[in-house]
Simulated assay, not measured.
Amino acid sequence: MRLSAPSARAVDLRVEPVDNVLDHMERSLHVELDRDTVVRKRRSVGARTDRLTWIRIERRGLDNIGVQGWNGTECAALLEGIAQPTWLGCMVWRDADGPVMWRADETDLLPSAPIGTAILSEDPGLQDAWWQAFNASLDALAAQDTQRVATPDTVTITQELVTEAVRTISPAEGFDTAVERWVPAHADLNWANMTAPTFSLFDWEDWGNAPRGLDSASLWGSSLAVPALADRVRHERRHDFESRDGKLMTLFVCSKILGPGAHPQDPRLEPARRMAEQVIAELQAG
């Protein structure tokens, strides 16, 4: 069940004026933002504060806040064995001008800079120690217990969603799309949400149970414009990719790349198409 409210208008915070939102948050939390450090994303804005912390502010329509809420960063503070910024507190308020909620989460500063944009076009040159810390955190995450359900792109992931996505690129009933194992996942794993040279994983709003391999497949999809990097992701997370669920998640990610909104010059199209054909053949072979 969702909160009953009119739908909020679509907003991209990369271009929407947000000064009044930042001002309100500063007054309420008695903090001052360093406006020179503001990072704007589609649905969030973040900045460094004068008390040497980071505040991330997210906007969501009331119709897009489900039963589990949108306190992912707060809930992720309870996870063990994962390199992430320490969560310090939050504030939540309703927008006076529409069916919208704002949430500001304050955390420690990141130990290093974010690696890049969600989709990379150049190899970031990550060291072996980074990959070891990355693997340790993803393995620790998959071993946790949670009642949350992952919401990649703010959409709750379900068996029906997986089947629908896979069937868009493999319509023939040549294999079963039933997920065998659901494990906790970050659900927004891309190169904009990790740091280097010191590894840390942040932006936990969408985390929750998902089919095994969702995170690995998502990062692979974000790496396809750099073939060597995509291959490294598959090598490091091979136990995910070799599993049946990991193959389904590979197709799930490929469906997003190859879908109706695909740009004809996206360098990820051809490698995604080749991988989809390979994985479909493997699943059909049993």
Results as ranks from 00 to 15, higher is better:
M1S: 12
L3I: 15
L13F: 04
V15I: 13
P17L: 10
S28F: 13
D34I: 06
V39W: 10
R43F: 14
S44Y: 10
T49Q: 01
I55F: 03
D63R: 12
G66K: 07
G72V: 04
T73C: 03
E74K: 04
A76G: 09
G81S: 04
I82M: 05
W93Y: 14
D97G: 12
P99L: 07
W102S: 02
S112K: 07
G116K: 03
T117H: 12
A118N: 13
L126S: 08
A129G: 09
L141E: 00
A142R: 10
A143I: 04
Q144Y: 06
Q144W: 03
V149K: 00
V149S: 00
A150R: 06
P152E: 00
Q159H: 15
E160F: 05
T168H: 13
P171L: 06
E173P: 14
F175Q: 05
V179I: 15
D188E: 12
L189R: 04
W191I: 01
F199W: 01
S200A: 14
G208S: 05
N209P: 03
N209H: 08
G213F: 03
L224Q: 08
L224A: 05
V226F: 04
V226N: 02
D231E: 15
R238T: 13
E242Y: 10
S243D: 10
D245K: 01
K247E: 00
T250M: 06
C254V: 05
L258C: 01
A262T: 10
D266W: 01
E270S: 14
P271M: 07
R274T: 15
R274W: 08
A276I: 06
Q278Y: 14
L283N: 06
G286F: 07
